[in-house]
Amino acid sequence: MAEDALQVADLRYRWPGQAPCLEIGRFSIAAGEHVFLHGPSGSGKSTLLALVGGVVLPERGTLQVLGTSLASLRPAARDRFRADRLGIVFQLFNLLPYLSALDNITLACRFSGARRQRAGDVSAEARRLARRLDLDDGVLARTASSLSVGQQQRVAAARALIGSPALIVADEPTSALDAQRQCGFIDLLMAECAHAGSALLFVSHDLRLARRFARTVSLDEINRAGGAQG
């Protein structure tokens, strides 16, 4: 856990046939650190997340996630790395609608033996996390499509947290929630990340949420690319 959760140097990426949308000189997140990354839409945050997730590779420069350069891994190993070491929460529609909330949480462990092992009793761990996130057992049994948006986001958070991945990436996870619930959700997420010792990269356009974080970084400031999109 000594290595940084994320280390970026001289990174550049362009989507095929487009101008570079991401050029970052230096950016890092320490192990266990919680960082608020402020990125209005069009600042290149989706691209940065795709790079962190290893779905795309940098055109230039280095990107190390938890001490591993994703570019050095083969595609299948990158998928494995993502399954084992990263927890991701999206803005909306995080869950497979036809699975129960519990199945959605444990889905992460189905794709990763490492997370399954770290979680121990997967079902019990899922229930523990759910309780910490204010989801009772009745909610867990229901299918994801029947949950409220707030419940869905908490289930998504539980799925990202299960098996204690070293880096949690949250992409606008609160934009579908009202202001009151936003703060509650962030507190729960941060508390659980702290409990698991996971680093948290929280990406949002909404600066009001930044107050709760010790460190805020603006993507506009670190991204030197001009015509950034997405």
Binding site: D79, R82, A83, I88, F90, N94, L95, L96, R159
Partner: peptide, 15 residues
């Protein structure tokens, strides 16, 4: 959407 979620959870294109 479902496929993207599976990808984020570590499912490879082959899967």
């Amino acid at each position: 959407r479902e496929l993207a979620i599976l990808r984020s959870l570590g499912a490879g294109p082959r899967q």
